[in-house]
Amino acid sequence: MLSLEHKKAFFIILFVINFLFLYFAFYMRGFSLSVFLSFEFAFLGVFIIILLSFLSYHKKITLLAKQVVIIKKPLAIFQKKVLNFPKNLKFSDINDDFETKKKLNFRNFVLFFSFFKMLAYVFFVLGFLFLQKQELLVIFAFIVGIFGVPFAVLLFALSVFVLGLYKK
C-alpha cells in the first residue's frame, strides 16, 4: 500500500490538475456556472469510479495474496544441471481445464462488476442526465473533467515510479 507521503502527493497532484484543467475549460468556454458544474461533476464522478475500482481490486489481490504459500528451495550450488527429456509424451484433452477456467472467469466477472463500482457508474450517468435535463451540461467541460483524473494518475505514476520522487 502507498505511504501517507505518497497519498498526500497524489492528492496534491490531483488538486493542481483539477485547477489547471478547470482553468483551461473556463478559458475555452468562458466563466459560467454550467462550465464549472459540468467539469467538477465529471472530475468527481471519474475519481469515484477509479477509486472504487482500485479499492475493489486491492481487496481482491490482498485476499488472494494471503492464500499463496511460498516454499523456498535450498540453494543448489554444487548440483549438476541434468537435462531430462521426457520419454513419453502425454496429450491431454482440450476441455480438461474448462471447468476451472469457467470458475476463474466468473470470479473475474464478479470482481469487475462489484456493487460499489456499479453504483459509481449509476451516479455518473444520473448526474450526466441531471445536468442535461437542467440544461447545465457543457460537453467540452465534461470531457475535460473526465480526462483530468487519468492525467493526474499518470503524472503521479511518473513522479513516483519513473522519476523516483517522493521516496522515504
Rank of each mutant, 00 (worst) to 15 (best):
N18Q: 03
I77C: 10
L37I: 08
V35M: 06
K73D: 14
L89N: 11
N95D: 11
F39W: 07
G30H: 04
N18K: 02
S56E: 07
I71G: 04
K8G: 02
N84H: 12
I50W: 07
R29H: 07
S92D: 14
K103H: 13
F31L: 07
S38A: 07
S53W: 01
H6D: 02
G45I: 03
N84G: 05
K59H: 14
M28I: 07
L51A: 09
A42W: 05
F21P: 09
L33R: 01
F91K: 14
F19N: 05
L44T: 03
F31T: 05
K102E: 14
I49L: 15
K66I: 13
F41V: 06
F91I: 15
F15K: 02
K66C: 10
I94P: 03
E5R: 01
L33H: 01
S32T: 03
I13Q: 03
T62I: 12
L33F: 05
F19I: 13
L44V: 08
Q79D: 15
H58Q: 13
S3F: 02
T62P: 02
K81P: 09
A25W: 01
A65K: 15
L63C: 06
A42K: 08
S56N: 15
K101R: 06
I70N: 04
S3R: 00
K66S: 11
N18S: 09
A65G: 07
K72M: 13
F47K: 05
G45R: 06
F36N: 00
L55V: 03
N18F: 05
N95V: 08
K7R: 10
L2K: 00
F21V: 09
N18M: 06
F85S: 07
L33A: 04
F98K: 00
N105G: 13
L52A: 07
M28G: 00
F11P: 01
I17C: 08
L4F: 06
Q79L: 12
I77E: 15
I94W: 07
A25F: 00
Q67G: 08
I71H: 12
L104G: 10
I94N: 04
F43I: 01
K59S: 14
F31P: 01
H58S: 15
K81G: 05
I13Y: 00
L51G: 03
V68A: 09
V68K: 12
L33P: 01
Y57H: 12
G45D: 07
F41A: 03
K72W: 14
I13V: 08
F26H: 02
L33V: 06
D97M: 08
Y27E: 05
K101L: 12
K80M: 09
Q67F: 03
N95Q: 09
F54T: 06
K80Y: 12
S92H: 15
A76V: 12
